[in-house]
Design a binder for these strands. Structure first.
Lengths: 207, 207
DNA sequence: AGAGGAAGATGACGCCCTGTCAACATCAGT
DNA sequence: ACTGATGTTGACAGGGCGTCATCTTCCTCT
């Protein structure tokens, strides 16, 4: 097997990933242009030039495409988060790097996602929990747990702490995107200071 | 007009609110038993004994019923929140009372909502922003703004702070419900200490 | 009281979306 | 080339959606 054969493993495999990509891209466009609620599987598949039946070889439903899109986002962010962990020696440094990275990521995604959205549409602001998002949560929680074990942070409830941090990042991030200009640095300062300031005050667990 | 006439203003009005209530109750049951995604308007209306067309005299779609249910929850919680504000003199007291009240409310709702849910179902954990929820946010933000104006809290970004508090309450509340036994006091301690501890560390606004 | 009108309930109907499937096309291995 | 396997196609049946003409029930006015 040559290296080329590894990179492009047969035409079958190629078209499979290409079709999947095409459907996901089309779905992103359709959701953005028509709005999620009124989009149909046919709207999506029509834009790809594929037949309607082909859609169901890749996804079971419109909802599953949406979930896959959300999952994609989390999957793209996770390596960034990992890099933050490996690049920082202190708990404080990790937290700041991670939150700053998330806000930057959010601002980027926001630009591309909302590029063609018709203005003034009532946006349901739906949130789902995908497997990849669950992994992000676990990664954050484990990072906290490790920091606690190494004495880099007080012995607090890592599960609650991770939930609280992700919560603050999500909501403050959303508010940040609504402001003009979008100021990721200010939002980062707010979120990081809140969490790091509150950390020493948290209830301690028994050792 | 006698007082009775005020309380029961004609049969028309009575059946109207009764039907609306019946649809909402049926919807809550159906969503809980079948799962939201697969529930249909017919499933809901069948359970009420009303005709299918009648549904559309009250709601435009299944989604609108769901939104109304969520709105109901927020509407029931808002007076509780108001009472917390009026009963407390300090910022700290208000925050603690509000969060404790929210967690208690959440635990109650959880019990009734999930009573008949088939075990092990994958729960999409969907979140929408209803008008009543928006008002809850505004109420919290305004309460913070007042506290800041009166010197009861440092001059921080009330908008971000309200978002962060609600975020923490939501996510820590969710995690709390997943644990056995459900310990609202511990969750309250965690959330309140995090926020109150972080408050002095937050970036200050120009006066 | 009762006639007229208004508000709301009814359920059959047409529309369109969904998910399937048998037939067809294309690819990989021999 | 040959052949099974893998994937695509689009027509089709099934069903949910939202509407609307019709009917029922209640309210108002004389």
């Amino acid at each position: 097997m040559s290296q080329i054969a590894v990179l492009s493993q047969g035409k079958r495999e190629q078209t499979k990933v290409a079709n999947r990509r095409a459907i996901l891209d089309a779905a992103r466009e359709v959701f953005a242009e028509l709005g999620y609620e009124v989009s149909t599987v046919r709207d999506i598949i029509r834009r790809t030039g594929l037949a309607s039946g082909t859609f169901y070889n890749y996804f079971r439903s419109r909802d599953e495409v949406f979930e896959a899109l959300a999952d994609d986002g989390a999957a793209r962010f996770r390596p960034i988060l990992r890099a933050c962990w490996e690049a920082s020696n202190t708990f404080d440094g990790y937290l700041r790097a991670a939150i700053q990275a998330y806000f930057d990521f959010l601002a980027d995604e926001h630009d591309s996602w909302q590029a063609r959205r018709p203005a003034g549409e009532r946006h349901p602001h739906m949130l789902i929990q995908t497997p990849e998002m669950e992994r992000v949560f676990e990664e954050v929680r484990d990072a906290f747990a490790k920091a606690i074990d190494h004495g880099g942070a007080p012995r607090v409830d890592a599960d609650y702490l991770a939930a609280a941090c992700i919560a603050v990042a999500r909501e403050v991030g959303d508010k940040m995107l609504e402001r003009r200009p979008v100021d990721t640095a200010a939002a980062t300062d707010f979120a990081v200071n809140l969490i790091l300031g509150g950390l020493p005050a948290l209830p301690r667990l028994a050792p």
